[in-house]
Design a protein around this nucleic acid. Structure first.
Length: 822
RNA sequence: GCCCGGGUGGCGGAAUGGCAGACGCGGAGGACUCAAAAUCCUUUGCUCGAGAGGGCGUGCGGGUUCGAGUCCCGCCCCGGGCACCA
């Protein structure tokens, strides 16, 4: 494609200038109104892919747009530079993850710089920087001190193909490894946890006030999963003073409890199991322990599998409502980690209990009358209670209240709120992450590394084999140390922290990486926080956002971040994904479309415009054969702007005609349109409005009778300012040509539409007869209803169509439309 | 199964209950050129018609309304999230 100017040279020139002059550096004591714009901390996978490009196009648009509104905009950049992919790649290539990662960082940085995205590079942060690790480890130790970090035995996800433990988010819903596709196994290991469950209530409640997409808020709420119910005892028949503690959200169905179930991990299981049932119970527990998630879920679909998944313990407990004994089963459909690990089973009102009861031939007693057409199955809906003694006739809500009161009085019951959310497992048995800064001593146990010895940085000569053991554990120089308390030989923790810990506070470091001796100065950070606009992918809707929210709350509570708002991200925008051939585009699948080829041909401005123009920013983008053409179309638009600014094929006249006046009005209407589109994140229509304006201006200036020169120049200037956040290079270049020696277009203010010019002098009113358009009339915008009706009925086309018939009704909606009904 | 989104030309997509298809891509025709590229102009929902003009059109079926892509009810299909959480 032949271009009217050297796109590459122009883009390089301006990128260099923004970087060298520190145009987008902002100081913490800046007097202007503040705005914190942030794109999600990227994992350095190499040159940017189109998902990154999309992200930074939106982010940079916000930065430049807000800057034009006179604000001090904080726009930082950095890298989520620890992580498994680099470690795997390094093992494969026989190199070091740091070398590998830093090469990828350089590529990604180059990609975003060539996009023309601007940042305050003085604030750059990357996870494997010892200066960052020092504070990451300090935070860990402060959590430990505050009881927010603890160590416990837990099952983890082990991938045999990758020979390593995986993070939960790396396991597919079907229990396979996201990377290798192998079936993930469960292994029991001593692990470090963060007590995020302490914050469940706050994390749930604070979601309400966030300006986030509703669906992300819903996902957060579902993930936390609050449920209100009752915890109470089912007394043991053998020893009624003791009981099997259960949790239920449906105490009202208590009369329908025909059996109880404990999880295979339940502490009372052994005691409950009678001699003659020992073998079956043991077999079931063994199966449950070794079974992968996949096997457990797969068998739940088929009724045939259910029988094998439960066994009678031989014991009985008493249903406190009916005072009848009911059998206790063990089954893996009850989870050891939720509630009390034991349930009261109500087959008539619960799907799972029903399926289990059917296989094991347990009685089903309805306690809620289902609708007449309901049939055999379980019914969990609303209805009057039956077979329920004192609750008979009550609706579900009042029966719940009555049942709860009963349990509190008679079964050691108490109201209880449970959460689905589990504590955050932060240990990783891998090398390329931030080491957990503790030491194990035979005498003193777990000992924190003294703060003045941080950061603990892993040595370079570690063997990263595939044994599955933490690589650091095999390095004697790292492993063997002395106890900071007693001085005796001790060993270092060999696990590293989940990389989600790094991305949970980086935005605080950005706000103030300058103050020595602190992760960030809370006084400085408070000037920027919360992030005004956070932009990233929907794939982080749950984990990253939840973890970062937890971190900030915890940091405030342990005194590291006094005075900061308790929520980190005020507004969140989640962009759509780039899809190739209908599948999700990801680095692991290798189907990336590098931006570099576009920089060299259409230019960054063209590529940015494409991403803005292709559709609503929240929608997914299908990268197809047509995409190349669309990108070229956007570059064509850039060229047309350039040519018009250079008066290519234009003609001019001197006096200001009504046509010139109308063009001027059109410009102001465009200002109004683009401004509201920008505010509403409708970037595609903002670009369309500018394309329309360009079409209008070009046609006008190329008429033989010509255009009013001063009006064209005024229009061009306004258009360049509107276009500046979208296509920063060409607008900066043209502005400099037109205004040599003056401040850049990016230093001008965002245009404001003149309301007097936005208004139309006359508009076209549509006249319908029975809903069909018969005439168009040019009318004044403030035409009255009566006048509109009269004008419509007088229109010749209407008279002809009516052919003498009398209108039944005339609906006048001036100045848009009149509908004549006959 | 449950909970969210979403179905509009050949394609990406526009449309405070009031002219469906803005803008762009692609297609067709033309100008310029020895020719091509680039650029510019015209045209482009489907369909009947030589034409003027008519009919049909926003996943399907109903409804509300003078008027529905938009609101209501019932379906179908696609995408995403959750999926033994008691």
């Amino acid at each position: 494609m032949a271009r009217p100017f050297d796109v590459s040279a122009v883009e390089k020139k301006w990128q260099a200038r923004w970087r060298d002059e520190g145009t987008y550096e902002v100081d913490n004591d800046d007097e202007r109104e503040r705005f914190y714009a942030l794109c999600m901390y990227p994992y350095p996978s190499g040159a940017a892919h189109q998902g990154h490009i999309r992200n930074y196009t939106f982010g940079d648009l916000v930065v430049r747009y807000q800057t034009m509104h006179g604000k001090a905009v904080l726009s930082p950049f950095g890298f989520d530079s620890f992580g498994l992919p680099a470690e795997n790649a390094a093992i494969k290539a026989g190199s070091h993850p740091r070398l590998f990662t830093e090469a990828r960082m350089a590529e990604l940085k180059s990609s975003v710089q060539r996009l023309g995205a601007v940042f305050d590079w003085r604030r750059e942060v990357y996870s494997h920087d010892p200066a960052y690790m020092k504070w990451a480890q300090t935070i860990f130790l402060k959590f430990l001190e505050a009881g927010l970090a603890y160590r416990a035995l837990a099952p983890v996800n082990w991938c045999p193909g990758c020979a390593t433990v995986l993070a939960n988010e790396q396991v597919n819903p079907d229990g396979t490894c996201d990377r290798s596709g192998d079936l993930v196994e469960r292994r029991e290991l001593e692990q470090w946890f963060f007590k995020i469950t302490d914050y469940a209530e706050q994390l749930l409640n604070d979601v309400d006030d966030l300006e986030w997409p509703e669906r992300v808020k819903t996902m957060q709420r579902n993930w936390i999963g609050r449920s209100e119910g009752v915890e109470f005892d089912l007394p043991l028949v053998e020893d009624p003073a003791r009981g099997l503690r259960v949790f239920t959200t449906r105490p009202d169905t208590g009369f329908g409890v025909t059996y109880a179930v404990v999880a295979p991990e339940h502490p009372m299981l052994e005691e409950l199991t009678t001699v003659d049932h020992r073998d079956e119970v043991r077999e079931l527990v063994e199966r449950a322990r070794s079974a992968s998630e996949l096997e457990r879920t797969a068998s739940s679909d088929a009724g045939a599998g259910l029988e094998k998944r439960g066994a009678f313990t031989g014991s009985y407990v008493t249903n406190p409502f009916s005072a009848q004994p009911v059998p206790v089963y063990v089954a893996d459909y009850v989870l050891g980690t939720y509630g009390t690990g034991a349930i009261m089973a109500v087959p008539a009102e619960d799907e799972r209990d029903f399926a289990f009861a059917r296989v094991h031939e347990l009685p089903v007693v309805r306690t809620v009358e289902p609708p007449a057409d309901h049939g055999e199955g379980p019914y969990a809906g609303e209805g009057p209670h039956i077979n329920s003694g004192f609750m008979d006739g009550m609706d579900v809500a009042s029966a719940k209240e009555a049942a709860t009161a009963f349990l509190v009085a008679h079964a050691r019951g108490e109201r209880k709120v449970n959460y689905r959310l589990r504590d955050w497992l932060v240990s990783r048995q891998r090398f390329w992450g931030c080491p957990i800064p503790v030491v194990y001593c035979d005498v003193d146990g777990i000992v924190a590394v003294p703060l003045d010895q941080l950061p603990i940085v892993a040595p370079d000569d570690v063997v990263m084999d595939q044994s599955g053991q933490s690589p650091l554990a095999t390095h004697e120089g790292f492993r063997d140390t002395s106890c900071p308390t007693c001085g005796r030989p001790a060993r270092r923790e060999a696990d590293t922290m989940d990389t989600f810990t790094d991305s949970s506070w980086y935005f605080l470091r950005y706000a103030d990486p300058f103050t020595p001796g602190m992760a960030f100065d809370p006084v400085q950070a408070a000037k920027w926080m919360p992030v005004d606009q956070y932009i990233g992918g929907i794939e982080h809707a749950i984990l990253h956002l939840l973890y970062a929210r937890f971190y900030l709350k915890a940091l405030i509570d342990i005194g590291l971040a006094p005075g900061l708002p308790r929520e980190p991200f005020k507004r969140l925008f989640t962009q759509g994904m780039i899809r190739l051939d209908g599948s999700k585009m990801s680095k692991s699948k290798g189907n990336l479309i590098a931006p570099e080829k576009y920089y060299d041909t259409v230019g960054a401005d063209g590529l940015r415009l494409f991403h803005l123009f292709v559709g609503p920013p929240e929608d997914d983008v299908d990268w197809t054969a047509q995409t190349e053409d669309m990108i070229e179309g956007c570059a064509r638009f850039v060229d047309r702007v350039y040519r018009l600014a250079h008066h290519d094929e234009c003609f001019f006249h001197d006096e200001f005609t009504p046509e010139d006046e109308e063009v001027r009005r059109e410009v102001h209407r465009t200002i109004a349109k683009v401004t509201s589109a920008m505010e509403g994140w409708s970037f595609n229509t903002a670009v369309a409005a500018l394309m329309e304006l360009l079409n209008t201006l070009s046609r006008w200036a190329r008429r033989p009778e010509g255009a009013h020169l001063a009006t064209l120049e005024e229009s061009m200037d306004l258009m360049l300012r509107l276009l500046a956040p979208m296509a920063p290079h060409v607008t900066a270049e043209l502005w400099e040509e037109r205004h040599p020696g003056e401040p850049s277009v990016h230093a001008t203010s965002w245009p404001v539409a003149d309301p007097a010019l936005v208004a139309h002098a006359s508009v076209v009113m549509v006249v319908q007869v029975n809903g069909k358009i018969r005439a168009r009339l040019e009318v004044s915008p403030d035409l009255s209803e009566g006048d509109a009706a009269a004008a419509a009925l007088a229109a010749p086309e209407v008279v002809t169509t009516l052919a003498g018939a009398t209108p039944q009704r005339v609906v006048a909606r001036p100045p848009r439309l009149v509908n004549v009904i006959v």
